[in-house]
Write a protein that binds this DNA or RNA. Sequence first.
DNA 1: CGGGACGTTGACGGTCCCTTGACGCCGTCG
DNA 2: CGACGGCGTCAAGGGACCGTCAACGTCCCG
Lengths: 228, 228
Amino acid sequence: MTGNRVLVVDDEPGLVTALSINLRVHGWEVGAATDGAQALDMAARWHPDVVLLDLGLPDMSGLDVIAGIRGWSHVPIVVLSARQHGEDKVDALDAGADDYVTKPFAMDELLARLRAAVRRAAPVDAADDAVVEAGDLTIDLARRRVHRSGAEVRLSPTEWAVLETLVRNRGRMVPRLQLLQEVWGPAYSNETGYLRVYTAQLRRKLEADAAHPRHIITQPGMGYIFET
Amino acid sequence: MTGNRVLVVDDEPGLVTALSINLRVHGWEVGAATDGAQALDMAARWHPDVVLLDLGLPDMSGLDVIAGIRGWSHVPIVVLSARQHGEDKVDALDAGADDYVTKPFAMDELLARLRAAVRRAAPVDAADDAVVEAGDLTIDLARRRVHRSGAEVRLSPTEWAVLETLVRNRGRMVPRLQLLQEVWGPAYSNETGYLRVYTAQLRRKLEADAAHPRHIITQPGMGYIFET
DNA sequence: CGGGACGTTGACGGTCCCTTGACGCCGTCG
DNA sequence: CGACGGCGTCAAGGGACCGTCAACGTCCCG
């Protein structure tokens, strides 16, 4: 029901390990990054439900990491910092962070803030039904399963990511840029070839007549749209 | 652009006054309540963009206030509390609060957290469709779709960009220069021929009688106007 | 070690769209 | 009355985009 993937970003391996153990005990799936570049890469590829970010990173400013993620994603970001005072808080929140926790912190407060951050973000995504029907297609967004005329259709992770993005925005056009960024990450904004390949594969698996699709519709020059 | 109504709930009149002055200086419209019942009443009647809530109220628990608001509204709630430690934070966040600030607090941090809370909430509300009706035309600005007498009309990217600019300024004249710059960019300020071509195409697709348009009206020598 | 699934590229043909120019209409002004 | 400018219309060419196919490398699992 609740999202459970947290990306921990901290340059101190000991703290990352300690946090990971604690978070896993409380049911989180944990991913880790020790510098800003890794963090951006993980955020793009792994799609965490919340990012726990230490501002003191070796390779780039924490604010740049926030900006780098906010450029294409609305995933909640909880900032973790040793500095008790100063304008860090203000800057981080204004840069797009969702919450701020100062070291030292109580574990249960951190957990509560993570839960709150995920819960706040939830309504945006979870507003739609878990199961979407479209003609002879049945798409279960929660279970990540697709059935066509009752038979299960096997989708690769990328195929599913493309379909999920389209289905969550069903009835409305999804711009190419948004699709690329949500599935492949912000560095792939120009790889329109990917979209051609994967829409074709999805049509082959899901459409009765791939040459005349009824669900995955191209809006030339703009993007794609999923029709129920 | 940003929401600007904040409801301040605190039983201490002096603090309410001080906060109100500070918030007003920074552009907020401020409403005040000094107990839980007032707070719930104000929240329901006044529809603030964010609630700043002190947990220590005379008549009811702060958690009940949170629950009372959460029962019907997703307005962001920032909790304000004197207690530095304890489980207050955890309880408040789990009850549905969005953020937590402890006294004493820095004014600029509070302002940043309020801004962050409002910004987070914005997408949920802004997701409502801007659908414009004009005669037999239905233009869905969010979904990027146009229907005429119920049938979908296919528009090219440039056609859509022109129409969108006109519709977003419906009822107002859009100068040629603005139209050219918003659709083609600032380097195309003299390409008035483009406008002639695309207004003609749009009329052919959208108007019942392209020779006597009822929606896309020319203002000779100046620009175009979209009439509903 | 072998095989399959998957992601990534590149090539190619077909289609659609943007751009451009020419032309006619109409109102205005000299 | 004729010239002129603004506007609408049309058509054509060239380029961008899209769908399709195939090949390659990688990773994982048997």
